[in-house]
């Protein structure tokens, strides 16, 4: 899966934009939260992040490293209030692949195990966010 490159590009661009607007020239570490639902290949993501952070891609800010933090995906039914873990569901590979691109498509394939409703929310673990950056 090479969709990770698109996400890595988005992360690097965002950090660069943020840091340069704040007058930060060097970022020691970027902490990125990885929601389970998007099934990111962390090895590829990390490789892509490091590659894209090298010159000449990033000119304004020097990013030294990244830390990827997993976030478990929790779903909650809006009808009956039932809460469950995404990883407990048995979903086929096609669904997982679709969720990798657009996590919300699980609403087409997943129902509340308790009341069978498709009206549920992803409480956490949806996608990729930049949680924080460390500077000197």
């Amino acid at each position: 899966m090479v969709h990770e490159w698109a996400l890595a590009q988005a992360i690097v661009d965002s950090v660069e934009e943020y840091a340069s607007s704040e007058g930060i020239g060097k970022v020691k570490k970027v902490i990125v939260k990885i929601g389970e639902l998007q099934a990111i290949d962390k090895e590829i993501l990390m490789f892509a992040l490091n590659e894209l952070s090298k010159q000449p891609y990033v000119r304004k800010v020097n990013i030294e490293g990244y830390e990827l933090k997993d976030e478990e995906a929790i779903l909650k039914c809006r009808v009956c209030g039932n809460e469950w873990k995404f990883r407990d569901m048995k979903l086929n590979e096609d669904v997982m692949e679709s969720a990798h691109f657009v996590p919300e498509v699980i609403h087409a394939f997943v129902k509340c195990p308790y009341c069978n409703s498709r009206d549920f929310e992803v409480v956490r673990g949806r996608g990729v966010y930049i949680e924080s950056i460390e500077t000197d």
Partner: peptide
């Protein structure tokens, strides 16, 4: 910056992308 509004989760890198 319009493109980088912080959310409860952190920064959403998609908007820059």
């Amino acid at each position: 910056l319009k493109a980088l509004k912080p959310t409860e989760e952190g920064f959403d890198p998609r908007v820059t992308a």
